[in-house]
């Protein structure tokens, strides 16, 4: 029931967001209509970071002996998958915005580069999840991998920032990503977009978690059946 409600709420709020961002909000004085992309780019980026943060927290909860439960491992994996989808989307939206504003699809800006590395780090994490170990073994390895990836992000960001500031004078484009929000509708729509996408995140993770639990149950049952068959095969000839 909560799932249905959550789904409907996120669907409605996304529809409202589309109307706000595409119709109600006036075009930006400097960036024109391209600035409307911010109302999806910013919340998808927020959602990606939120998702990886949840993955890290769930991984800690799995590793902590007192809170260890299979549930945390599945949540970490589900959240990471949603995070990867939205990191990819963030990068694509950033490119679509950068093309008209910066005049280029890609700029080796610190934020962009870190996000790209982040994307690959968690693609690797998802690949690690699918390598068929027992639930406990997978939980342990993936929780550790998630925490290492999470800890790696600030170091990557730091080194990339440093690298970027070295040849900033070579940058012909204005790399200023910070958007000035004027009037009432611009900040309102941005805050609303973040809320709407957070709802979407909750819906997606909930759904993905349900799938993870189903898959887990099926794998367990298959294992059980295989063991039983083996046992029967051993008993009969004797």
């Amino acid at each position: 029931m909560t799932g249905k409600l959550l789904g409907v709420a996120s669907g409605v709020s996304l529809a409202v967001l589309a109307v706000l961002a595409l119709v109600v909000v006036p075009p930006d004085a400097v960036q024109g209509d391209a600035q409307r992309l911010m109302y999806v780019h910013v919340p998808t980026a927020w959602l990606a970071y939120l998702a990886f943060f949840v993955t890290a927290v769930a991984s800690v909860l799995w590793l902590w002996p007192r809170t260890r439960a299979p549930h945390w491992d599945l949540l970490a994996g589900s959240s990471a998958e949603v995070g990867v989808v939205f990191t990819g989307l963030t990068l694509a939206l950033g490119s679509l915005w950068g093309r008209p504003i910066w005049g280029t699809w890609w700029e080796w800006d610190a934020r962009l580069t870190t996000t790209l590395v982040l994307f690959f780090l968690y693609v690797g994490y998802l690949a690690l999840r699918r390598t068929g170990a027992t639930a406990d073994e997978r939980g342990k390895r993936c929780a550790i991998a998630a925490l290492i990836a999470f800890a790696d992000v600030p170091v990557v960001h730091f080194s990339v920032t440093w690298w970027e500031t070295l040849h900033q004078d070579a940058t012909v484009f204005n790399p200023d990503l910070d958007v000035r929000m004027e009037g009432f509708w611009m900040p309102f729509t941005l805050v609303f977009s973040v809320l709407a996408f957070t709802l979407l995140y909750a819906t997606l993770v909930r759904t993905r978690l349900r799938l993870a639990e189903l898959d887990e149950g099926r794998e367990e049952r298959e294992l059980q059946r295989a063991i039983e068959e083996r046992r029967r095969a051993e008993v009969v000839p004797a």
Partner: peptide, 16 residues
């Protein structure tokens, strides 16, 4: 300012 509705449409379409 150029008309950038093409990029906006692409972005919102892609997200959806």
């Amino acid at each position: 300012m150029d008309d950038n509705w093409g990029y906006v449409a692409a972005g919102y379409g892609l997200t959806a």
